[in-house]
């Protein structure tokens, strides 16, 4: 075989492999859209489930997921961003730093059900929050931290070093330098990490299983110490726990969940490209 033929063969094989990776994703999305689209309606989104959840809409679960996403944000961002700033700007190369980094890497690899169990033990039982929005938000918040920390740290480190040096040379303190010259330019990357983290939080079932999710709760939560329904758990319930559940409703829920998670990714991409375009250097 000539060199040209080898080259052509390589291109064909690699393209095929790439396609094999992409095709299942496209199939999943298309199938869910095809099956779920007929269910999508204003009523489906705004009505509570009825008749043992076999009829009606998904409003409490949808709203619950939105609330939990906000809760996750409130828990995760301040901690994650502070950690990222510490790691990128202040931490020396020492044993403490290495331990922190090891902890973050390991946190990222922990199965989400383990977070759920930790949330049950720590927030629901030990701290006495009960099965509640606050317990769920804390659990989801901790789960998203590794992703947000890593992306935020990368974004901070990507800010050119000379901006820091110049800022310091003009009499800025270290914190002023971070505040005025580093964080503003790291923001697109930080926001991307945040949105991706939230997308993951919105779609997870295991962490909310024991900490917040209600099986069936047609009325809305009144405080952060109440339970709430949530879309991923709702989908799990109607797919496995309710006999005689119309398949259409299941795909309707799946589609809504998929759209929420995809929209997070989409927004993250848009934010990043928009802010990159405005960058001056």
């Amino acid at each position: 075989m000539s060199r040209q033929q080898t080259h052509k063969l390589a291109v064909v094989v690699l393209t095929a492999v790439a396609a094999i990776v992409v095709i299942p994703i496209i199939l999943v999305i298309l199938y869910v859209v095809w099956q779920g689209l007929p269910m999508l309606s204003w009523a489906f989104l705004t009505e509570p489930p009825r008749n043992g959840m076999t009829e009606g809409g998904i409003m409490p679960a949808l709203l619950g997921t939105i609330i939990l996403t906000f809760g996750t944000a409130i828990v995760s961002f301040p901690l994650s961003i502070a950690t990222a700033i510490y790691l990128a700007e202040y931490a020396g190369d020492n044993r403490l730093t290495r331990w922190i980094r090891m902890a973050i890497v390991n946190l990222a690899g922990i199965p989400s059900i383990v977070y759920g169990l930790f949330g049950l033990g720590m927030f629901v039982l030990f701290l006495g929050f009960g099965t509640s929005i606050i317990a769920g938000s804390l659990t989801l918040g901790i789960m998203t931290m590794p992703v947000v920390i890593s992306t935020a740290e990368e974004a901070i480190l990507a800010v050119p070093q000379q901006f820091r040096t110049v800022s310091l040379s003009l009499g800025a303190s270290r914190w002023q330098t971070i505040r005025y010259q580093v964080l503003p330019h790291a923001l697109p990357g930080i926001i991307t990490g945040i949105i991706l983290g939230l997308g993951r939080a919105a779609g997870e079932t295991a962490p909310i299983l024991f900490t917040v999710a209600a099986f069936y709760l047609p009325e809305l939560p009144r405080s952060i110490f109440d339970q709430t329904m949530a879309l991923p758990y709702h989908l799990y319930v109607i797919a496995t726990q309710v006999p005689g559940m119309p398949l259409q409703i299941q795909y309707g829920v799946a589609l809504v969940l998929l759209l929420i998670v995809l929209s997070f990714t989409l927004v993250a991409t848009l934010v990043r490209t928009q802010m990159r375009r405005r960058r001056e250097w």
Binding site: F163, T165, S167, S169, L170, A172, Q176, E280, W281
Partner: peptide, 26 residues
């Protein structure tokens, strides 16, 4: 004791903002 570097390094922002940066911090 102020420093000017080998590579011209403006900070992102306007000409005005570059010059007033240190002053505002002061």
């Amino acid at each position: 004791v102020s420093m000017v570097f080998a590579v011209p390094t403006p900070l992102p922002g306007s000409i005005y903002a570059n010059i007033t940066y240190g002053l505002k911090l002061a």
